[in-house]
Amino acid sequence: MTTQVNDNRFDEAALQEQFDATIEAKDRIEPRDWMPEAYRKTLIRQVAQHAHSEIIGMQPEGNWISRAPSLRRKAILLAKVQDEAGHGLYLYSAAETLGVTRNELTEKLVAGKQKYSSIFNYPTLSYTDVGTIGWLVDGAAICNQVPLCRTSFGPYGRAMIRICKEESFHQRQGYELLMTMMRGTEAQREMVQESVNRFWWPALMMFGPPDDNSPNTEQSMAWGIKTHTNDELRQKFVDMSVPQAEALGVTFPDENLKWNEERGHYDFSTPNWDEFWAVVKGDGPCNEQRLNHRKRAWDEGAWVREAALAFAENQTAEAAATPTAADATPAAGVDTTTPEETAK
């Protein structure tokens, strides 16, 4: 792990100039490079939120592992949720290159001091939601994340390349589940439509507040942390999703959704931003539940983590290895979202 060296022997202005040149050239900033403190803080916040989103995001889909209606689907779902834990691991590692630890970040999350993507504050009320989340939520996450593969901070960008590959795989799995259900019984088709109705608007809100109400966007774009505005990405997502819905045989719950020849894009209604801000501020259907779940797991695991540390300390002279962190490599992966909305 590298921590920032504030060495006064160097002229800060010269360093800033070099940093700006790197950004301008669209090269990567690496952990050992000088960077403005505000850049570091912004990145820590964004990467941590992203990591937290992966970990909290395990819950809504994990809710259906025990009830997945076929063994094949159970295996796919379990592997997917496991992948989210793997994504969380890569991202916490990327954050650690900025001088924070995973434990610190987790403590902040469970204390409610750092955010995660609001989409996970919606409940999964039907097994079908597993497919819908794959298609729409992972789909929106990919739209948000693909540009991040070119983000200016090296470790984050490289983590995102791997994560995006895995995300797009899971998105296909989700869409394929819905396709299969649409070929099934009438009851199954109704389940798909019901689930899509519930997730359409929350998925659109995943791109964050409208550009005129997203104060951090400008600075993040100047730094190359963010490369597209919220509204640009939202429009792109709508344009891509409509033909998908048609192929699937479902509709989106928006009577104003229609092709605009002049703009070359689909028009759509304004999302309910009051609902959005309410969820961001903690009043969503599952905010408390998600955080309590994470806090419980973290608190209940404290004695295990302490035991592993104590064992490792006792073992320094001995050959035996502890099965803690060294035991598991980040696995392959799934679902995520940039919590753009918390940019507020």
């Binding site: 994990g62 949720v81 404290a302 295990v304 983590r305 962190a325 598991a328």
Partner: peptide, 9 residues
């Protein structure tokens, strides 16, 4: 799943 003491576990 989502309940273990740490991510590795």
């Amino acid at each position: 799943c989502s309940n273990a003491p740490d991510l590795e576990e």
